[in-house]
């Protein structure tokens, strides 16, 4: 069964097309990483899925319902982001209590364990928490709510490395115990990639790639060697990224659809490309990168 289905989904905000003809489906009980550059439309997409925003055109289904104003979607979906707001007149502990009234699958034991593990004070007010602490509290809500569709939009904002690691581990353990559909968007793809089953890469509001993380890891390959040899080798290949190293050597990323041994035999160094680097290369608007901005300058 598909938990999420989008067909030709578009969202216009003024003259900006935040989403543009986006189509994809998400299978139940998978962890999907939503990847893309800033402004690619990740947050817009997630807010439409959670029923917060409505689409301009196209079709969106969550649990086979139109999410905007659907109570079923609201009761079975939770979107954790740094915009979550909670009443100032309730303490953190009272907020957990309120959440347990609303979410039928709420796991109070897990919530309380995480609450004390992360050293929260019951009497604190959400608004007075630091950025990292707010994010940490929000993910407690997100995990304990046990919603069939759990969405994290940049959940680790402001968290230090140790807490981020704890969160990823908590998320995985809870997922193993209670499989559900999870979508997570993150700038730290290298940190979350091991947790993911699938990756949805969007660029300028469109689907760019949707494949398993293992396929993404093998999607492309990096070639390093003498520019002349590399260039000769490239003739029929799809170049994803290229940059020169020093005077006569090049690093080129191409689609991984050939026998590496032949390249190695030519003296070309073959290396895997990390998914996070690859998604940057794939979504660079133009060929080249920051270096081309400075191309007019030459240092001697």
């Amino acid at each position: 069964m598909n938990v999420v289905e989008c067909k030709g989904l578009a969202k216009h905000q003024g003259s900006v097309k935040a989403l543009d003809d986006l189509s994809f489906t998400i299978k139940e009980d998978t962890i999907t990483g939503l990847i893309g550059r800033n402004g690619a439309g990740k947050t817009t997409l997630l807010k439409i899925l959670a029923g917060y925003w409505y689409e301009s055109s196209g079709e969106v289904r969550v649990f086979d319902e139109h999410p905007f104003n659907s109570l079923t979607v609201s009761a079975n979906t939770i979107l954790i982001d740094d915009q979550m707001s909670f009443s100032n007149s309730l303490t953190l502990q009272e907020l957990l209590q309120e959440a347990s009234n609303f979410y039928m699958n709420w796991d109070m034991e897990l919530a309380q364990r995480l609450f004390s593990y992360f050293n929260f004070d019951s009497k604190q007010i959400h608004e007075n928490l630091s950025k990292g602490k707010k994010s940490t509290f929000n993910i407690i809500i997100g995990l304990a709510a046990k919603c069939a569709l759990t969405i994290f939009d940049e959940p680790t904002t402001g968290m230090d490395a140790a807490v981020r690691k704890d969160f990823y581990r908590a998320l995985l353990k809870d997922y193993l115990a209670h499989p559900r559909t999870i979508i997570i968007s993150s700038h730290h793809l290298d940190e979350v990639e091991d947790l993911l089953e699938d990756v949805l890469l969007i660029n300028e509001g469109k689907r760019y790639l949707h494949l398993s993380i293992d396929d993404l890891k093998e999607y492309a390959i990096g070639l390093r060697g003498k520019s002349a040899i590399v260039r000769q080798w490239l003739n029929d290949k799809e170049v994803i990224h290229s940059q020169s190293i020093g005077t006569d050597r090049s690093y080129v990323v191409v689609k991984n659809d050939f026998d590496h041994d032949r390249a190695t035999r030519l003296g070309i160094e073959v290396s895997p490309v990390s998914p996070s680097d690859l998604s940057v290369y794939l979504t660079n608007q133009k060929q080249g990168g920051i270096d081309d901005v400075f191309s007019k300058r030459e240092f001697r």
């Binding site: 009980d29 009761a75 039928m104 046990k146 919603c147 069939a148």
Partner: peptide, 13 residues
Amino acid sequence: MMSLVNVNLGNVV
């Protein structure tokens, strides 16, 4: 798969 929670309008209100 987590079974879907059914809610009704009156209850949520």
